[in-house]
Design a protein around this nucleic acid. Sequence first.
DNA 1: GCGGTGACGGTCG
DNA 2: CCGACCGCCACCG
Length: 111
Amino acid sequence: MAGSTYDRIYRAVRSIPRGRVASYGDIARLAGLPGRARQVGYALAALPTGTSVPWHRIINHAGRISLPPEEGGLEQRIRLTEEGIRVDPGGRVNLAEHHFKVRRRRTKPAR
DNA sequence: GCGGTGACGGTCG
DNA sequence: CCGACCGCCACCG
């Protein structure tokens, strides 16, 4: 069924435009699964090689690549760089410049 | 059916 | 800035 959790997650990931990144939590929200960021990572881990899903645009909320270099983190870094996204030596991405807008203000912006 | 595990997130010290 | 803790829930043995 197209309504499976994984399909929703993959669809949300596909919605991230080139040159932008989003966190696992952001994807969970876009997929209508708030608070289930772990499942996003799990779903991405299940992707087959050569998938058209842009998994490399997903990073953790610390703004860093969450995947060990040997496990694909290096590839992710290369792909991001090819999209014009700068990745620091420590694996950090400049969120202020590339974060895909998904964040919301908390209820009542205090004002 | 139970318990451990994990490409996470938010908070606290 | 960073590590430790806890909460979250699907997958697997």
